[in-house]
Design a protein around this nucleic acid. Structure first.
Lengths: 145, 145
DNA sequence: TTATCTGCAAAGAATTTGCGGGAGG
DNA sequence: CCTCCCGCAAATTCTTTGCAGATAA
């Protein structure tokens, strides 16, 4: 069975080679935000002959084809995640004490960003939001607004 | 007259060398988001003996001292901008047709982000938002894509 | 003075690319 | 087949660092 990403590739008319199929599978099976090295590691588990250069080339291709998006969480490497659909435009909260990344979605935020872009005279085509936070101590209640 | 950034350096007890003074001046005089190469170019106009290694080292120092913040707009290099104050926590809208960067500030957005972080169990310590948009062409016909 | 800083060049880290053989449609 | 793709290794690009001399406090 082809992975969701593999199907997308075919829809978009990309030549489906073995390395691309494997990379597509890895992406579909990943729910975190792997960098290229991590992707290559997972790809190698399925097919050790695939080189990291191909992972780079394929991620660039997938990015240009709107299958994945590149992210940057402040460490100097590119991270990737599958694009699932417009309704799923989530964002990230990075726990600065651990580096762990939480995803969230907020309706109010989506509306607000479109409004802000419009007020500035633009149609919003993409947006990134990253929050950086430290965990609230358990027992101390979150500050009410 | 010392630049605003130079004054900050002295307040924070940093040794004020000539290269740092020049770099501080360049930062204070810049209202865009220069990368290190651009900074070095501007620095060289004032003092050609200053090396790019020093610019890198100084930007790292200024970043650690909370005088500037590093930004990433998707091209692979670090960009810097002066931190002006808490009330000024603005964000960026990038015009994808030109690459031009607009800054904006929105009170509602500030409140919302703090609320979201709290609801996730975190105290917000920093945040980045980038909007990517295309200009609304009022009055002219829509461009076919 | 004396710890810190700087320029230079070399080292690193992440990513890209030229090349010749290989595989998809 | 013919074009595009792949692995390999070398090349690029951005950034960091070791060293020995220079400099601020």
């Amino acid at each position: 069975m082809d992975s969701r990403v593999a199907k997308l590739c075919m829809e978009k008319g990309l030549k489906m080679t073995e390395p691309r199929r494997v990379i597509a599978r890895v992406l579909s099976d990943s729910d975190d935000h792997p960098d290229v090295e991590a992707l290559h590691g997972r790809v190698r588990d399925l097919d050790p002959s695939i080189s990291i250069a191909t992972v780079y080339r394929t991620m660039k291709l997938f990015e240009e084809t709107n299958i994945v998006t590149k992210r940057d969480f402040g460490d100097g490497r590119a991270r990737y995640e599958e694009i699932l659909g417009d309704e799923d435009h989530h964002h990230h909260l990075i726990d600065v004490t651990t580096g762990q990344v939480l995803e969230f979605y907020n309706e109010e935020l989506e509306a607000l960003k479109i409004k802000i872009a419009n007020e500035l005279g633009f149609k919003l085509v993409d947006h990134h939001l990253e929050l950086f936070g430290v965990p609230l101590k358990r027992g101390s209640k979150p500050k009410a607004d």
